[in-house]
Design a protein around this nucleic acid. Structure first.
Lengths: 142, 142
DNA sequence: TATTGTTATACTCTATAACTATA
DNA sequence: TATAGTTATAGAGTATAACAATA
């Protein structure tokens, strides 16, 4: 409860001060997800980012207006929207990620090698515990 | 970059679904800070929460309107605002914290005892690295 | 003149609810 | 009738810039 917001603050602060090509955190995370899941639909984005469909729609819309994301209607079932990054989106994501990771890495470097190993192990454990949590808590209530 | 937002999402999700007496995360963190630093001024809140003075002013204003925080002008230097929790604020904070911590604890319990130790050590290390980043010059011993 | 805080303005994120389009 | 997505509306958080009050 205490540490996570500290780290979040740092990430956001870095993203602000280094512009990040003007990406907000939800936008950034959406780009990351679409980079690894080309052709995903909006519902999948919403579930992954952990927001409602309506919120995801707005975030994706902003990204589409900036030509970072391409929206296409599926032929099979025209209710679905297929999403993927444009070339500009990919380039933007790469540069944004490099910037932010570099600054996070700087922080981590301040820790001892043992602490770095500990942090890495802990994050893996936390990911295992938290990563699959949004599916049950998000799907059932809709 | 990947795990921290997951945990944040979980915290926020818990806060939403369990109402948290309608506290947002910045409001919650502000109450926590004031609980441990009675009489702190607005600038200290802003620095601790990691936002600008203007943003802190808005958050505190919302808390004051809900009678959770009491604002008082300092006699010595009337530019300063002294902040503290009301009784209602204290009660609200306690219940909110109990709820959220209980749910976080549930998650952590899913990890093995070794993993729990690892997570704890990692959070300590991260706190050491990230906590003083906001206020390198503010070394009060409170 | 410097410092503390507030207000004005503008933007993003977020939710819920109502709506459209498709199946 | 059910599902995917959008739009409308509202509220909170955030920033910068301009302002007020105090020292």
């Amino acid at each position: 409860m205490e540490v996570v917001p500290l780290v979040m603050r740092h990430i956001r602060s870095e993203m602000r001060t280094h512009r990040m090509r003007g990406l907000s955190l939800p936008q950034f995370r959406t780009l990351i997800f679409l980079n690894r899941n080309e052709g995903a639909c909006l519902s999948q984005v919403a579930e992954h980012v952990g927001v409602t469909l309506a919120s995801a729609s707005k975030v994706v819309n902003a990204l589409a207006e900036r030509r970072l994301v391409i929206r296409m209607t599926l032929r099979n079932d025209r209710r679905y929207v297929s999403l993927k990054l444009s070339k500009l989106g990919i380039a933007t994501l790469i540069r944004a990620r490099e910037d932010t990771e570099a600054h996070l890495a700087e922080r981590i470097t301040e820790l001892s090698p043992e602490q770095q190993v500990t942090v890495f192990a802990a994050l893996l454990a936390l990911r295992g515990s938290f990563a699959d949590q949004q599916a049950p808590s998000n799907e059932k209530e809709r």
